[in-house]
Write a protein that binds this DNA or RNA. Structure first.
Length: 420
RNA sequence: GUGGGAUUAGUUCAGCUGGUUAGAGCGCUAGUUUGUGGCACUAGAAAUCAUGGGUUCGAAUCCCAUAUCCCACCCCA
């Protein structure tokens, strides 16, 4: 019986983990530069949190959650996204009384039971952030610019930003009526899902891939044309802030977002390179969510970015980072006596944060050289009888072939200053 | 949940219409006399041909089922 990684999960091996580390470091640093602080939340929560927070009619909640009963009889769910947990933590830990906006970012794994394909896994990684307590459109522009700056720091270009407004409960109720009036005569011709959507959430009929080509859908009234005055002003405000930041965007009235908590601003960063799962990053405002979770009414906004998709995009754009050499120096030893010296030297180097290796396998000198070459270790030192006698070694730069004599006494100090 | 394609050494693949001991490149191990790597040469390890059935004198090859992977629908990050 051979074990294998479970469907929809994958190992991130040393040969690619450095890409993840680069992205994680960059994301954290960009977030910090905007005043966002990292939060780490639990991997699982009580099931109701997601049912209420994400919306109990959404696909994510109805068919994609990893839910189980624990030994104490509690219904537990592996988080399918980050926002609900962060909101819970925000309320539970009294962050509502912190000066606003409260800015939080996170780097999490999330779990959805889905049929996998390109850029879509059952266990996947998200970078995300949430900002609480800011009502005006400036914060909307700010979190969009976090993504924009992050992409730039990753060297990525041409990832299209689409924005839309889906209004507040007030204008949405109004619009739903108008939309239903529009679709009512045609419901019979629409797909099964749409007939269901007509009752539950007519907004989503516009987004339908099956009926999308039909005139009824194309000519459907757009929510964005029926926003209330406040929502309209908010959206205009966002556009003008983005303009003044020089961030390009397109308005896509079809962005609906499948999570129930969104209000007003919704946006996506979309790429052609990721397959049909083109959305690298999606987010929006959720002004009702904190209140819905029994916290004090607090506006909120956030986004989540699919790290797998981000890295697919980086690869497509040829912007994967260089792998850095953790081991800087190889010490080849020619005798048992030399090996003792080499081991001690390595020990001291490591205390000084300098990565190094020496032979453990009892390999021949030649084989040691071969190993160091294959590992592409950038510097080499040979220790034999001559070196032991003279107390001096030659540090060879493998790229240039250049050799520098260095006394064993003070060797660590030399390495600290001179190994690139 | 619905479709399409795939599954042969660690890895990337070859193996024609079923015919004796299943191959290659890369990688790995060792060696090419213990003083300078990547190259080259030599040798070696490594595959119950995804799993389970079936057809056949004979199956990696044909059929069925299952699993997994990839892609699309759907949904989303």
């Amino acid at each position: 019986m051979k074990f294998s990684a479970q469907k929809g999960t994958r190992d991130i091996l040393p040969s690619e983990v450095y890409r993840w580390q680069k992205a994680e470091k960059t994301f954290a640093s960009v977030c910090h530069s905007f005043g966002y602080e990292e939060i780490r939340i639990p991997t699982f929560e009580q099931t109701d949190l997601f049912a209420r927070g994400v919306g109990d009619t959404t696909d994510v909640v109805t068919k994609e959650m990893y839910t189980f009963e624990d030994k104490g009889g509690r219904s537990i769910t592996l988080r399918p996204e980050g926002t609900a947990g962060v909101v819970r933590s925000f309320i539970e830990n009294g962050m509502t009384s912190l000066p606003s906006p409260v800015r939080l970012f996170y780097n999490i794994t999330a779990f959805r039971y889905e049929k996998m394909q390109k850029g879509r896994y059952r266990e996947f990684h998200q970078f995300g952030l949430e900002a609480f307590g800011a009502e005006g459109p400036s914060i909307d522009a700010e979190i969009i610019s976090v993504v924009d700056v992050f992409f730039k720091k990753m060297g990525l270009e041409n990832i299209a930003l689409h924005i839309n407004s889906i209004g507040c409960p007030k204008c949405r109720a109004e619009y739903n009526k108008i939309l239903k009036d529009h679709f009512r005569p045609h419901v019979g011709e629409m797909c099964e899902d749409c007939r269901e959507r007509f009752e539950r959430n007519p907004l989503r009929m516009i987004d339908c891939k099956v009926d999308g080509g039909k005139d009824v859908v194309k000519n459907a009234p757009r929510l964005i044309d029926y926003l209330c005055d406040d929502c309209k002003a908010h959206f205009e405000g966002l556009k003008s802030e983005l303009d003044s930041l020089g961030i390009k965007y397109g308005i896509d009235p079809n962005i609906v977002r499948g999570l129930d908590y969104y209000t007003r601003t919704v946006f996506e960063f979309v790429s052609e390179n990721v397959g049909t799962q083109g959305t690298i990053c999606g987010g929006g405002r959720y002004d009702g969510l904190v209140g819905m979770m029994d916290g004090p009414a607090t506006p909120g906004i956030g986004f989540a970015m699919g790290v797998e998709r981000l890295l697919i995009e980086a690869e497509a754009q040829g912007k994967l980072p260089e792998k850095e050499a953790h081991v800087k120096l190889y010490i080849a030893a020619m005798s048992d006596e030399a090996k003792k010296t080499a081991s001690k030297l390595c020990y001291d180097l490591r205390l000084a944060d300098i990565g190094c290796e020496t032979d453990l396998a009892g390999r021949s000198f030649r084989a040691q050289m071969k190993y160091a070459g294959k590992q592409e270790i950038p510097y080499l030192v040979v220790i034999g009888d001559d070196e032991l006698a003279s107390g001096e070694v030659k540090v060879k730069n493998m790229a240039s072939g250049e050799e520098t004599p260095v006394k064993l006494d003070g060797f660590v100090e030399y390495c600290q200053g001179n190994l690139a």
